Computed example of a mutant assay.
Amino acid sequence: MGTSDRGILYPARLPTFRRVAPPASVADRVRWFWIPEWDLAPGRVSRQHVIAFPACNLVVEPGFVALAGPATRADVRDLTGRGWAVGALLQPAAVPALTPDPAAERDGYRHLDLPDLHAAVVAAMTSPDPDPDPGPVPGPVPGRHDRAVAAFTAWVEARVPVPDADGRLANALAAAVDDDPALVRVEQVAARLAVSVRTLQRLARRHVGVPPAAMIRRRRLQEAAELVRERPGTDLAALAAELGYADQAHLALDFRTTLGFTASSYRSAQ
């Protein structure tokens, strides 16, 4: 399964939304940039449900910059009017530069005083596009999203340190959990990275804000929602086994406690 809309419960309801791979210069600090935009008719509301990745996000909105902490429940936001955001899903290695205790940021959305980042991204998103190069062979003109990602990238390069050995290992932890559905126990992740479970717990505490086991549960729930949506005829017991749940009851419990509804009701709502 890919990650283009993983974690988004109702992709068809989304406004304009892009995920942009980071330039190589900051790929060790940003997993990807994401940019939603919306322009809704008066009185209309677009409700967005997201199973966020177990990570921190640095988000620029028109009026402020915020640090979104690691989520332990589904995130629901009602969009109205006209707006946009430019966010960076942070690699674990980048987190200590923004908060000394990511666990304290859980399910939070804390405003940060980062006027230089805010000014650069807002200027990129609100300035008119330049005219094409009038030369004999016009070159491509960067759009607003490209300019916003470039401004965000420049800020990260200047303000977020290059990862040390612990940061690189924390990045490897997140990559292993997020990218390999065969890893369903913390001990398997520790063996993959050739470290102890205690080391993984220490890394997650400093760089992620939720334990490794919670990171695995979050990835499995994202995958479960994606499979229920994309393969509506799949038997839920078979799906639970495919994702490494002990049984269908554990999958059902994960849906209810995190999302507040059952896998069956989610499937019916598509």
Rank of each mutant, 00 (worst) to 15 (best):
M1G: 13
T3C: 03
S4E: 14
P11M: 12
L14S: 12
P15V: 10
R19Y: 04
V20N: 08
P22L: 08
V26M: 09
D28F: 05
R29Q: 03
R29V: 02
F33S: 06
S46C: 15
S46W: 12
R47V: 14
Q48F: 02
Q48E: 14
H49F: 05
I51A: 01
P54F: 03
A55R: 10
N57C: 09
G63W: 09
F64W: 05
V65P: 03
A66Q: 13
A71W: 01
A71Y: 01
A74L: 15
T80E: 13
A85D: 07
G87I: 01
A88F: 02
A88P: 05
P96A: 02
P102L: 02
A104K: 08
R106A: 05
H111P: 09
L117V: 11
H118G: 12
V121I: 07
V122F: 11
M125Q: 13
M125S: 06
S127M: 13
D129I: 13
D131H: 09
G135Y: 01
G135R: 02
G139E: 12
P140S: 06
V141E: 10
H145W: 09
R147K: 14
V156C: 11
V156T: 11
V156Y: 05
V160W: 11
A170T: 04
D178K: 06
D179L: 15
P181V: 12
Q188L: 08
A190W: 02
A191R: 14
L203N: 05
R205I: 09
R206M: 03
R206T: 14
H207E: 11
G209I: 01
I216A: 07
R219T: 08
E223A: 15
E223P: 03
E226H: 09
V228P: 01
R229H: 08
G233F: 04
L243C: 11
G244I: 02
L251Y: 00
A252W: 01
F255S: 00
F255R: 00
G260R: 02
S264R: 15
S265Q: 13
R267M: 00
R267D: 01
A269P: 05
Q270Y: 01
